[in-house]
Simulated assay, not measured.
Amino acid sequence: MKMRLASFAVLCAFLLVPTIASAEGTNVDVVYGLTTGRLWATMDAVVGLISAVIGGVSLARSAGRFGIGSGRRGAIVAAVMALIVIVYAGLHLANFTGGFGTGSGRAGAIVAIMMGLIGMVLAGLTLARSRRAS
């Protein structure tokens, strides 16, 4: 029993000492709060979300679920907004260097690109459906 306890203590020491030493050697400051990078990324993500919502509404309208019309105008608006979001979020990723948690807003920019892509896909589906119907 004592041998198992001693071997467990030695194993923990071998695992924990390098981990603690490497953690002390890193010089990464975690930033809390709203920084300019996070604000820019948040605005991009909100505009991307609006683009995805407009694309979804136009797709539902083209399917005849509510409203009248083909939803073509909404799809064009969603596609343009999505393209703008993707460009701005790409510029954000290029300009703001730093890892995740440093306040540069890289995670928000990646979310914004994903929202823009979703908006673009929904707009494309709507435009394809409206072409088929005409």
Results as ranks from 00 to 15, higher is better:
residue 80 V to D: 00
residue 77 V to L: 09
residue 48 G to F: 00
residue 79 A to M: 12
residue 35 T to S: 05
residue 71 G to H: 07
residue 41 A to Y: 01
residue 74 G to V: 06
residue 95 N to K: 08
residue 75 A to F: 15
residue 71 G to Q: 04
residue 57 V to L: 14
residue 89 A to W: 06
residue 36 T to Q: 12
residue 58 S to K: 12
residue 45 A to H: 02
residue 49 L to G: 10
residue 85 V to I: 02
residue 46 V to M: 02
residue 97 T to F: 13
residue 36 T to C: 03
residue 44 D to K: 01
residue 66 F to N: 13
residue 60 A to P: 09
residue 89 A to I: 06
residue 64 G to L: 07
residue 60 A to I: 07
residue 85 V to N: 00
residue 67 G to F: 03
residue 76 I to G: 08
residue 65 R to E: 15
residue 105 G to M: 02
residue 91 L to R: 04
residue 76 I to W: 14
residue 95 N to H: 12
residue 98 G to H: 08
residue 36 T to P: 02
residue 43 M to T: 01
residue 57 V to G: 12
residue 104 S to G: 08
residue 61 R to N: 13
residue 44 D to A: 05
residue 52 A to F: 10
residue 101 G to E: 11
residue 85 V to Q: 01
residue 87 V to P: 01
residue 97 T to A: 15
residue 62 S to A: 09
residue 60 A to V: 08
residue 90 G to Y: 04
residue 102 T to K: 06
residue 63 A to Y: 15
residue 80 V to H: 01
residue 88 Y to E: 03
residue 66 F to C: 08
residue 95 N to W: 12
residue 104 S to N: 14
residue 97 T to Y: 13
residue 103 G to I: 03
residue 104 S to K: 04
residue 101 G to W: 13
residue 79 A to I: 12
residue 101 G to K: 07
residue 104 S to A: 12
residue 99 G to E: 13
residue 50 I to T: 00
residue 63 A to R: 15
residue 39 L to Q: 05
residue 87 V to S: 01
residue 84 I to C: 08
residue 99 G to T: 13
residue 37 G to C: 07
residue 38 R to H: 09
residue 37 G to E: 08
residue 56 G to K: 15
residue 107 A to I: 13
residue 71 G to E: 05
residue 66 F to L: 11
residue 52 A to Y: 03
residue 51 S to N: 08
residue 72 R to N: 11
residue 70 S to A: 06
residue 42 T to A: 03
residue 87 V to Y: 07
residue 47 V to M: 04
residue 42 T to P: 01
residue 65 R to N: 13
residue 87 V to H: 03
residue 88 Y to R: 07
residue 83 L to N: 10
residue 55 G to D: 12
residue 82 A to N: 04
residue 40 W to K: 12
residue 70 S to Y: 06
residue 47 V to H: 02
residue 51 S to Y: 03
residue 53 V to H: 06
residue 107 A to C: 05
residue 89 A to N: 04
residue 41 A to T: 01
residue 58 S to C: 06
residue 69 G to W: 04
residue 107 A to E: 14
residue 45 A to P: 02
residue 66 F to G: 10
residue 77 V to Y: 11
residue 47 V to E: 03
residue 73 R to Q: 10
residue 74 G to L: 05
residue 41 A to Q: 01
residue 68 I to K: 14
residue 92 H to P: 00
residue 74 G to Y: 04
residue 100 F to E: 12
residue 35 T to G: 03
residue 103 G to Y: 11
residue 92 H to I: 03
residue 46 V to N: 00
residue 102 T to C: 06
residue 78 A to T: 10
residue 42 T to Q: 04
residue 76 I to C: 05
residue 69 G to C: 02
residue 59 L to C: 15
residue 71 G to S: 06
residue 96 F to G: 10
residue 52 A to H: 07
residue 42 T to H: 02
residue 52 A to T: 09
residue 88 Y to I: 02
residue 66 F to M: 08
residue 90 G to T: 07
residue 50 I to D: 00
residue 37 G to R: 05
residue 94 A to S: 12
residue 63 A to D: 15
residue 80 V to R: 01
residue 94 A to M: 12
residue 42 T to N: 02
